[in-house]
């Protein structure tokens, strides 16, 4: 589904990614872990198409297409979803209108007719039930005045509405209390199918108690320095990132 080959990228002249290689197949859950500043969020943002980065080298293929050639909105419509680490507020734009525009753009891309108001509301209700979300969030402006937990739940709710092929969760666990973490994780699990894939970008292992990854990659200094199964996450939690840093330096 996603294939990253020797990806190098910089921001403001500073090289952040120094040759990333990663293969993600349908049905898989990958966790990318690493210390602060290792390039985790940069990788997530580059995959989603944020324009602040310069690609120096490498290629990224997503569902057979050259991902780096596509605009951010086309990446989204093609099935790539980013759950933001810091979802932005858009004052005055009701969540419900935002989401309706989003869902209908996705449908248009697939050659489907836009949903009527009734159909849309029905879909929304179904997804809310599935994620055990309170109904109030969608009546407010996009992320405006949401607590940290509400913002993250809202990201997962959008993911549920858009049913992406590849979901990238950027630090989705940060700022969540244990209950919110559970709700978010259960949501992600409920959305998992054999046809889609998930990349979890995280600093801590605790989200991985709820979402079991097939692969764990450790990112350090712009490179994946270690790859393993879910047990690698526990090992990291126990020994700390210094274990990797030291190992890498030797």
């Amino acid at each position: 589904m996603l294939s990253i080959k020797n990806l190098r990228a910089s921001v403001e002249g500073k090289e952040i990614l120094k040759g990333i290689n990663l293969e993600v197949k349908t049905g898989e859950v990958h966790a990318i872990m690493g210390p602060n500043g290792s390039g985790k969020s940069t990788l997530a943002n580059i995959l989603a198409g944020k324009s602040d980065y310069e690609i120096l080298e490498g290629e990224v293929t997503f569902l057979g297409q050259d991902l780096l050639e596509l605009s951010p909105e086309v990446r989204s419509r093609s099935g790539l979803f980013l759950s933001f680490q810091y979802p932005v507020e858009i004052p005055g734009v009701p969540m419900i209108s935002f989401l309706k525009a989003s869902v209908n753009e996705h449908r248009k891309f697939k050659g489907l007719a836009p949903l009527t108001a009734g159909e849309f509301l029905k879909l929304m209700r179904a997804k809310k039930d599935m994620l055990h979300l309170d109904t109030e969030l969608t009546n407010r402006s996009v992320n405006e005045g949401f607590s940290g937990g509400e913002k993250k739940k809202n990201e997962i709710f959008q993911m549920a509405m858009l049913e992406p092929k590849l979901a990238i969760l950027d630090e989705t666990d940060s700022g969540l209390d244990i209950d919110a973490l559970r709700i978010v994780a259960e949501g992600v699990n409920a959305l998992k199918t054999p046809e889609n894939a998930t990349i979890i970008v995280t600093h801590y292992q605790r989200l991985l108690d709820y979402i079991i990854p097939d692969f764990v990659h450790v990112l350090h200094n712009g490179r994946i320095v270690k790859t393993g199964g879910k047990e690698l996450a526990f090992e990291l939690e126990e020994k700390g990132y210094d274990w990797i840093k030291n190992g890498n330096d030797q």
Binding site: E73, F84, E105
Partner: peptide
């Protein structure tokens, strides 16, 4: 970018 990432074009995003 947030709007783009949800499939909404820049033009529509600005209008919104």
């Amino acid at each position: 970018f947030y709007c783009n990432q949800r499939g909404i074009s820049t033009e529509d995003a600005i209008g919104m």
